[in-house]
Design a protein around this nucleic acid. Sequence first.
DNA 1: CCGGATCCTATTGGATACTG
DNA 2: CAGTATCCAATAGGATCCGG
Lengths: 213, 213
Amino acid sequence: MAARDYGQYCGVTQALELVGERWALLIVRDLLVGPRRYGELAAGLPRIPSNILAARLKDLQAAGILRRVPRSRVIIYELTPYGRELEPVVLALGAWGFKAMGDPREGQVVTPDSMTMALRTAFRPEVAATLPATAYAARVGPAELLVRVDGTSLDVLRGDGPVDLAFAAGPDIRRVISGELAPDEAITTGVVEVLRGAPALLGRFASTFHLAA
Amino acid sequence: MAARDYGQYCGVTQALELVGERWALLIVRDLLVGPRRYGELAAGLPRIPSNILAARLKDLQAAGILRRVPRSRVIIYELTPYGRELEPVVLALGAWGFKAMGDPREGQVVTPDSMTMALRTAFRPEVAATLPATAYAARVGPAELLVRVDGTSLDVLRGDGPVDLAFAAGPDIRRVISGELAPDEAITTGVVEVLRGAPALLGRFASTFHLAA
DNA sequence: CCGGATCCTATTGGATACTG
DNA sequence: CAGTATCCAATAGGATCCGG
């Protein structure tokens, strides 16, 4: 889309010329979680052809959205400050798309980076501020995340650490976040499996992360 | 983009599968201003081929984003409530893209609907609330808009009416909105031509509509 | 193995002409 | 006016290959 011109002098068209091409905003989505190597991006976007990934990285770099940083023999891609300003766009798209997500289709996966951004989208700081600081270990499919909520701040990390509640769930966790499925019901029906900690803490999780459907 | 699947169970990918195709969000942008006929959409998107416009309208309708409404012999396209919820996405894109807009390129036009959405993007209700209600007639290129600000509410309409300030400008009006160009300087350099009313009111306009660059 | 580049095919988009 | 139909150009997808 970049080269082809919409022919309008307008912020929206300008934005779409820079990040409107297929896959571009998904690369940005993953880089919003943190700097990534080429192979990590490819792994987080399993269906992207390698030539397209290479082309997009080039385009996004030329647009000043990301930077290639050589770091001890490997190349790291990271967003520039201007690229990071796309976060509201990605969050708004994610919140809107969330409502249209039905049940997972055949072959659809949940990646750690997409899950991280989904949690950021659903995070309600004003609710979290009223609750005690809590750490969760959330496994959704193959994505294992350490989620730390403290006051109005949210951290989602890969890796382990001490947590108050550890649980595993399938993509149906969406129905808990949307409020369609009550936390205790999610546990009794097996949608969420509590691995460690007090099952009641899942209610706190559901209050902290919520998006209307 | 719609049929081709990103293969992820994620709000962002879901959104991009529905509105990620070329031209789709521009159709939504224009429909956010108001219901439009096929020919009006085509006029507001001068470079869209008619087959693409027809295809997008079909896709967007199938996705539940817009509706075709037969109204007294003609067909009107209007957003559904779900489609209207894309407004934050379009505003976020517009605000981000605004910063990357350089000077207008050859052949780029400003349409009434894109200008309307740009004003909505730049509107600062918290500033407007501190100022007296004001009506402006703004002509930017061929787009002539009646802009009414009252308290925290903004109305942008086509057509005429009594105004406090009428002015004409080129695309460089962007530099006033970004704060690059002071209102009085815009007038003395001819970037903005005041047609009726007190030139000092352009300062009020610039405070009311502002987007950082 | 990582980070791409290349090649070829399949789809999509663009320009224009045409029709109810 | 509100779209279809057609044909060509541009992009995306998929497999494979290459250099450090």
